[in-house]
Design a protein around this nucleic acid. Structure first.
Lengths: 154, 154
DNA sequence: GATGAAATCCGAGTCAC
DNA sequence: GTGACTCGGATTTCATC
C-alpha cells in the first residue's frame, strides 16, 4: 500500500473537512476518480487515522452555550504527579473544550463554554478553583469570537 | 412549527455531534422514531442552524500540523478601527484556528497550528508581529494537548 | 497494488394518509 | 407522526493494468 497521501488524497481530506456530508459519489466526481476507488481511498483515510472522526458542529448559541471564556491556570507545584492529577480532574469537566499544558506564565490554558457570565462565575467558584493543585487562575472573557475553530489548512 | 427542541432533538444533536456519519436509518433507531420523522427533524436541525455544518476532523499530526501555540496579543490602540483592521488581517492567516477578543491583560488570544517550532518562529517574525497595530505578543507553546476541541456538552 | 465497470443492496427523500 | 415507494448512492466483486 502507498505509504503516504497523494494529491487526490489531500484534496479529498480538504473536501471532507469542509463538508463531512459529501456523498461518496459527489466526492468521486470532485476528485475525478471512480466511486469505487474513491470509496477505498476514503476508507483508508479513516482506517489510517488521517480522519479521526466526523462531527456535526452544533451552534453554541442555539444550545445555551453562548459564552466563551479562556482561563490561564497556575498550579502550586510543578511535579508530574501534580500535573497528572490536575489533568485527570479536568477530563471530567465537560464544559472545558480545550486544556493545554503550556510553557510560559501559566501552566495550563483552558477554553470553556457556558451559558453566560453568571454560569461561569458559579462554575469558577465551584469547580475551577477546586481543581487539584490550583494556585491561581486568570480569566479572560471572550467579548467577540472573531474566528472559532477554523478548518485546518494543510 | 415547534419553537424549540424536545428531548428527541437534543438526543439527535448529541449523536450527530459524536458521529456525523450516522445514517438517517441508524439515527432513527437510536432515538426510536420512524426514518421519515427522523429525516424531517434532522433537516430542521440544519435549516434552523442548530447544526452549522459537518466536518471531518483531520488529525493534525498526520498532515504536518502537530505544533500548537497560543498567543496573547496587545494592540497599540484600543479603537474600533484598530480592532477591525487587526481582525480583517487575521482572517487571512489560515494557520490561525482561533482568534478571540478578550477582556483582561491581552486584547486578543490566538490559537495557531503549524508544523513545528521552527515554523512558528518564522511565522511569528514574518506574519504575526507584522499584523496591523500589534504592540506586543506573548507566546505560549503547547507542550501537551490534554483536551483539544472537546464536543459541546449541552 | 491500484484501478474502473458492473451488480447488488440498502438508505435517502418524498408522498399519501 | 407513520408507512410505502422510488430513486440513487454505498459497497462488493471482478476483470484488468
Amino acid at each position: 500500500m502507498r505509504a503516504s497521501l497523494d494529491r487526490i488524497d489531500f484534496k479529498m481530506l480538504r473536501l471532507l473537512q469542509d463538508n463531512g456530508r459529501l456523498t461518496n459519489a459527489e466526492l468521486a466526481q470532485s476528485v475525478v476518480v471512480s466511486p469505487a476507488t474513491c470509496h477505498r481511498r476514503t476508507q483508508r483515510l479513516f482506517d489510517e487515522g488521517y480522519i479521526s472522526h466526523v462531527r456535526a458542529v452544533v451552534t453554541p448559541q442555539k444550545v445555551d452555550r453562548g459564552a466563551l471564556v479562556m482561563v490561564g491556570v497556575v498550579l502550586d507545584r510543578s511535579t508530574p504527579e501534580s500535573f497528572a492529577e490536575f489533568e485527570k480532574a479536568v477530563a471530567k469537566l465537560k464544559f472545558i473544550l480545550d486544556c493545554h499544558l503550556v510553557a510560559g506564565d501559566f501552566d495550563y490554558f483552558l477554553k470553556i463554554r457556558v451559558g453566560d457570565m453568571a454560569d461561569f462565575n458559579r462554575i469558577h467558584g465551584d469547580q475551577l478553583i477546586a481543581l487539584p493543585g490550583v494556585r491561581q487562575t486568570r480569566t479572560f472573557f471572550v467579548m467577540k469570537e472573531v474566528v472559532d475553530n477554523a478548518p485546518l489548512d494543510f
